[in-house]
Amino acid sequence: MARSSVSLSFDMNGFKRDMRKAANQMVGNIARELSTMLNGMSREFKGRPVEEIKPVLQQRWKRVADGSITDPELTEYAEQIAAGGSFSIKADKLS
């Protein structure tokens, strides 16, 4: 039986670059979804009490970002929503 020689190589720098690119795209998508969600809530809840907005915001944030938001941030966003503010979430790129 003949033996064949197989040579494998792995480009660690290329792998890291590709992983960074994928992570940046994911974070960018979440930032856009959060902006869309917050602006929609701003139209929906303008003029409503902050305490009414906070539980809805917490629930929608979890759905979009799959995580939680601290109470001070939750309150700040809810106040901006109640005031009818506009949102544009920007994601920092990984380098």
Score class of each variant (00 low, 15 high):
30 I>Y: 03
66 D>S: 12
25 Q>P: 00
72 P>I: 07
41 M>E: 09
45 F>S: 02
1 M>S: 13
87 F>P: 01
14 G>K: 08
70 T>W: 01
84 G>T: 10
65 A>L: 04
1 M>I: 10
87 F>T: 04
24 N>E: 11
10 F>T: 12
27 V>K: 07
4 S>A: 06
64 V>T: 10
50 V>K: 10
47 G>M: 04
84 G>D: 09
84 G>V: 12
36 T>S: 13
35 S>I: 05
22 A>H: 09
91 A>P: 05
21 K>M: 08
67 G>H: 00
56 V>P: 00
33 E>L: 03
51 E>M: 03
64 V>N: 02
25 Q>L: 13
44 E>A: 13
4 S>P: 00
84 G>N: 09
55 P>I: 10
55 P>F: 06
37 M>S: 06
17 R>K: 15
29 N>T: 08
16 K>H: 03
67 G>A: 09
72 P>R: 03
33 E>N: 11
59 Q>R: 13
77 Y>G: 00
70 T>Q: 07
87 F>R: 08
64 V>M: 02
25 Q>R: 11
61 W>C: 01
61 W>F: 15
16 K>N: 11
52 E>Y: 05
59 Q>T: 12
48 R>L: 06
77 Y>I: 09
43 R>A: 15
21 K>W: 06
58 Q>T: 05
29 N>W: 03
75 T>M: 01
71 D>I: 09
93 K>W: 02
42 S>A: 15
21 K>C: 02
34 L>E: 12
3 R>M: 07
90 K>N: 13
14 G>Q: 08
27 V>S: 07
84 G>A: 11
13 N>D: 15
5 S>Y: 13
86 S>Q: 11
25 Q>D: 14
90 K>R: 14
62 K>H: 07
54 K>Y: 04
85 G>T: 05
51 E>L: 01
61 W>E: 01
55 P>T: 08
82 A>M: 02
13 N>I: 03
21 K>V: 04
22 A>E: 15
64 V>C: 04
74 L>Y: 02
28 G>I: 03
14 G>E: 07
2 A>M: 06
12 M>D: 09
57 L>G: 05
5 S>R: 15
28 G>M: 02
91 A>G: 08
83 A>T: 01
23 A>Q: 12
22 A>D: 13
47 G>V: 02
80 Q>F: 04
13 N>R: 11
84 G>W: 10
81 I>C: 06
19 M>S: 13
39 N>C: 06
14 G>R: 09
38 L>E: 05
51 E>C: 00
55 P>L: 06
34 L>F: 03
19 M>R: 14
87 F>L: 07
8 L>I: 15
19 M>L: 14
42 S>G: 11
81 I>P: 07
19 M>Y: 11
81 I>N: 05
33 E>R: 12
88 S>K: 15
39 N>Q: 05
79 E>I: 01
83 A>G: 08
35 S>N: 07
89 I>M: 14
7 S>N: 10
4 S>K: 13
15 F>K: 01
91 A>T: 12
54 K>E: 15
75 T>K: 15
66 D>P: 00
